[in-house]
Amino acid sequence: MLVPLNIDPEGLYKWGMQRDLGALAVRLIEKSEEARYRELMAQHHDLGDLAKIGHTLWYVAEQGEA
């Protein structure tokens, strides 16, 4: 299920994020996407690839049509 987010473009300018995000949606990672998600987290996140402990939900934000 996609959850559309309402983002105030003026608010982005305050934080130096001068980019048109268009439609932005946040969704849960599917089981088939976990390996790629973990690979990207290891490459790009400051904390790297953290192990799942207990009940863990991973999310991704997507740009485009919601």
Rank of each mutant, 00 (worst) to 15 (best):
L24K: 05
G22Q: 02
S32N: 12
T56A: 11
P4A: 08
E33G: 07
V3L: 14
Y13V: 06
H44Y: 15
A42Q: 10
W58K: 11
L5V: 03
V26L: 13
I53W: 13
M41D: 00
R36P: 01
R27M: 09
A61N: 11
K14I: 02
D49I: 04
G16W: 09
E10T: 01
W58R: 15
L12T: 03
E39R: 14
V3K: 14
V60S: 04
I53S: 15
H55L: 13
Y59L: 12
L47W: 08
A25R: 09
E34G: 02
G48N: 10
Q63R: 10
G16P: 09
L57W: 15
T56K: 09
L5I: 01
A23K: 05
L28N: 13
L12A: 05
W15P: 01
D49P: 02
G22I: 00
D8L: 05
E30L: 12
E33H: 09
E39A: 11
R19T: 13
V60I: 09
G16F: 04
T56S: 12
K31Y: 11
H44M: 03
D8K: 06
T56Q: 10
V26N: 10
A25P: 00
V26K: 11
M17H: 15
D20M: 00
D20Q: 09
I7G: 01
G54L: 10
G16Q: 04
H44T: 03
L12W: 08
E39Q: 15
D20A: 08
A35K: 14
K14M: 02
E62G: 04
A35R: 14
L24N: 00
A51G: 07
E33I: 05
K52E: 15
V26T: 09
A23F: 07
I53V: 14
K14P: 01
R38K: 06
N6F: 04
R27N: 09
P9V: 08
K14T: 04
L12D: 01
G22S: 04
A61D: 14
Y37A: 07
E65D: 11
L57I: 04
L50E: 14
L2C: 07
L50C: 05
M1E: 07
A35M: 10
A61M: 13
R38E: 02
Q43M: 08
K14E: 07
P4G: 02
V60N: 07
W58M: 12
L28W: 09
M1L: 01
I29L: 08
S32Q: 11
S32P: 02
E33F: 05
S32D: 14
D46Q: 10
R27F: 07
R27T: 15
L5S: 04
I29K: 06
Q43C: 03
L2D: 14
K52A: 15
A42N: 04
